[in-house]
Design a protein around this nucleic acid. Structure first.
Length: 402
RNA sequence: GGGCAGAUGGUCGAGUGGUUAAAGGCGGCAGACUGUAAAUCUGUUCUCAUUUGAGUACGAAGGUUCGAAUCCUUCUCUGCCCA
């Protein structure tokens, strides 16, 4: 089975271009390919996860990943955020982010060995561009009428399309061209929302007389309602364990909709498809098994086996009473802390007002007893040293009195 | 450059001088039901204090008024039309 079919089997692939030639090339040579990541934060989130999975499969199939950091494009900001143009990020900031991201990327792809991945930054070539030269060399290769026929611009036409947004396509295309020339990069892989920008690059290379530039896009990870997965009340689901704890991360996948289990098993784990099929062949309550495995496997990929086990252990302890209480999320608190402050400390509410609401609504329990008293003081005289604070049905936090 | 329209809470979107901390939808959270699922129903959803209370808030800054998201002035931004 060729790699593209393999990716298709796992439902990663959305669109391809020049597919026959692409398959032929992938079968016959080791192809340098690139994925782009904007270093706008010091951690990746679930949105990047799928792309990294694909990159990983590609590397295992013998192809060389090039990770393109959008240090140049991150400078000016994302055109889709209309209201606030992103602040200029300093070089230090970007470098810091690149370092953090690299550590996360290494969990999926290898920077060693024969087809070791490399990281490049498009700031290296974009920031020094001369406008007129760029327009003459690259700008002449694009026709506005063609660009406007792309869906992504068509929609924007009514709400206001800036020149910058159109220029974004040129820059991304130029990235591909540069990587082609510098590293022999022949394939770009990206999210399907990037389709227009991606084929811009493919065609640009072809206009300069080469016929071996290719691309395919990856399906966005969405839930059954078509909404992007990985959104939580606290914002994005980060891959950094400081930002999203492994326990929270595990719980997110443990709680997904029945209808999405198959998708995450296939797209976010390396489990063989036969196993995925077997796991998801059942219905109803039985699917919980598949969810547990999905949660474990996905957490293991991102945080390592040890953290995944801890998260699983904590879940068992809290939900089925079988694991040890050792690994459940916990915070230290001063003795004689008020219940409201404890709730905030545990991260269950951002303000006392909301903590009160939670108590009023009967959503808070301590050691399985419902809390009704807002002025309750947690002191070591009345309680054990460790107190299990619970919000709602599935948020737990161990309060450790100092 | 000229004309017109608009900017409201996490989001969408009502509201045109006073019971407006601002309808309704979505989203979030909690309760019931359940499988740590979905659907459904109920409650809740600015901050602080909590018996009544106070403070902020309707793009920004001023002003009119006993009283403004609502009226006036200037500014910023966005869209549409004409050039």
């Amino acid at each position: 089975m060729n790699i593209l079919d393999k990716l298709r089997e796992r439902d990663y692939v959305e669109q391809t271009i020049y597919e026959d030639k692409l398959i032929e090339m992938l079968e016959n040579e080791n192809v340098p390919f690139y994925i782009g990541i904007d270093p706008t934060a010091d951690s990746l989130h679930v949105g990047h996860f799928v792309t990294l999975m694909v990159a990983s499969y590609m590397q295992k199939a013998g192809h060389k990943p090039i990770i393109l950091m959008g240090g140049g494009t991150a400078n000016i900001g994302d055109p889709s955020g209309k209201t606030d143009m992103r602040k200029m990020m300093s070089k230090e900031e970007i470098n810091h982010n690149v370092d953090c991201i690299k550590a996360q990327v290494s969990k999926f792809i290898s920077f060693e060995g024969e087809n070791a991945a490399i990281i490049v930054n498009n700031a290296d070539w974009l920031l020094d561009l001369k406008f007129v030269d760029f327009m003459r060399e690259i700008g002449t290769q694009f026709t506005v009428s063609k660009m406007l026929s792309a869906d992504c611009y068509k929609n924007r036409l009514e709400t206001g399309l800036t020149f910058f947004e159109m220029g974004y396509m040129l820059m991304q295309s130029y990235d591909f061209l540069t990587l082609y020339n510098k590293y022999g990069c022949k394939l770009q892989i990206g999210g399907n929302d990037q389709w227009s920008n991606i084929i811009g690059g493919v065609n640009l290379i072809r206009k300069f007389g080469h016929d071996d530039s290719f691309a395919f896009t990856i399906k966005l990870l969405t839930n059954k309602e078509g909404r992007k997965m990985g959104k939580t009340e606290k914002g994005a689901l980060w891959l950094d364990k400081e930002k999203t704890t492994p326990y929270e991360f595990y719980q997110y996948w443990r709680n997904i909709d029945d209808k999405d289990v198959r998708k995450v098993l296939s797209m976010l784990t390396f489990l063989p498809m036969e196993e995925v099929n077997k796991l998801t062949a059942v219905e109803g309550e039985e699917l919980n098994k598949a969810k547990k495995i999905a949660a474990f496997e996905i957490t293991k990929l991102v945080h390592g086996e040890e953290e995944a086990k801890k998260a699983e252990d904590a879940a068992n302890a809290l939900f089925s009473g079988s694991g040890s209480m050792e690994n459940i999320p916990s915070v230290q608190a001063d003795d004689n802390i008020g219940i409201l402050d404890a709730i905030i400390l545990a991260g269950f509410a951002p303000s006392k007002g909301q903590a009160r609401t939670l108590i009023d609504q009967g959503g808070i329990t301590i050691n399985d007893e419902k809390v009704t008293e807002q002025n309750l003081i947690l002191s070591s005289n009345n309680f054990e040293k460790d107190i299990i604070l619970k919000k709602g049905k599935k948020s737990y936090c161990k309060i450790i009195l100092k």
